[in-house]
Design a protein around this nucleic acid. Structure first.
Lengths: 201, 201
DNA sequence: GTATTAACCGTCCGATCGGTCAGCTCGCAG
DNA sequence: CTGCGAGCTGACCGATCGGACGGTTAATAC
């Protein structure tokens, strides 16, 4: 128990939830039961307030979703930007992107989980899907480039390789839980993705 | 256009949908919009009949879900049974399980997709999750066994290896679409999973 | 032509959905 | 002790939810 060196300014008004704490709990609940499977009444109960109080913090259910997926997307594109700035071979940028993405998944697990489960039912969800496709496109280009460099196996279609690679990375949301062994998960992902599960002959 | 050699027995009664055709379209719709995001009215519209007509074929929305996920689980456990019957090293049984699972994913894509997205909100969904966990347990044991044989890299926790392996396999539901190039997808998955995306030194 | 079988329709229901609105409560600042 | 900002309540709304029910329609079988 370390006392955090009071960085927060003094809170005015009646104490209780603010937008951030509502968002945190909302996202956690959305992940447990699904966005459509979670009612605002469910959320209110979990928050310990009434449904109408939620609308003091956020104008709509959709907006909660938007805030969450945008946060996840912003972090992921932050990694993309840092990866693209690296001088060197494409496979090095790819490895940075993989490790960085794993780090984002781990640090922002609930937000990324929600992002990876949107369906495209609404404008908000379709916008999120569009940005996800852009991310996937960048990954595919990087894999293609690395294959042209002769650093990635040429016997599998680079588009398929890219999908499988990030299929593995993204699967983290289904089973990785922080603070339960699984130390340096990025290292484990990188090893298995780049060199496979089999021992070398 | 080949005329299929009439294997079907003559249908009695008024023509239209039967349980199977309702299930097919329901599962497709559930995958597009999510189970909770799809109303029975939505489904009725897609079927071209009224909502009440659906209840002639199936007693509840939950039952549609149950039929779908059970079909997927039955196929997957069929592969498990055939894998466990193989004499040989654990890694051979594991490779059979991977390739067989990919085949099931491809052949029963909508059903498996629905299975891999259940949340556990209802009794039906929790039962499906329980069978999924049993499947995962079998995979983890197989990976552990293969690692003890010295056939799988010992520098990653076998539980993590198992998760990443099937994380990759299961990611197929997110992007694989039949009849669009991507020939012998099982071969591609096996190569990348067992030997990695990098070229051998 | 008359059963039998299977598919379907229209109407209705109680519950729940996301969301609105006017007013109330709590705590710090001056 | 008053003003005010932030958080919250309770009552309510139209729409939609999954589902029930009694009657109808279209095909084959005899």
């Amino acid at each position: 128990m370390t006392t955090t060196p009071q960085a927060r300014t003094v809170r005015r008004g009646r104490p209780g939830h603010d937008l951030e704490s509502v968002l945190q709990i909302a996202v956690r609940l959305f992940n447990e039961r699904g966005y459509d499977g979670t009612s605002m009444e469910d959320l209110a109960r979990k928050l310990g307030i009434t449904k109408s109080a939620i609308y003091h913090h956020v104008p709509s259910k959709q907006e909660l979703l938007r805030l969450a997926v945008d946060r996840a997307l912003d972090r992921l594109f932050g990694v993309v930007a840092r990866a693209e700035a690296i001088d060197g071979r494409a496979i090095e940028r790819l490895e940075y992107l993989v490790r960085g993405s794993v780090a984002v998944l781990v640090e922002q697990l609930p937000f990324v989980t929600l992002l990876l489960r949107v369906h495209g039912n609404t404008k908000v969800e379709r916008a999120a899907l569009a940005r996800r496709r852009e991310f996937d496109r960048i990954v595919a280009n990087l894999v293609t480039e690395a294959e042209n460099d002769g650093d990635i196996r040429p016997d599998v279609d680079p588009a398929v390789t890219a999908r499988l690679l990030f299929g593995m990375v993204n699967s983290l949301i289904e089973w990785y839980r922080p603070g339960r062994g699984d130390s340096d998960i990025a290292e484990a992902v990188a090893r298995i993705a780049f060199d496979g599960i089999r021992v070398r002959a």
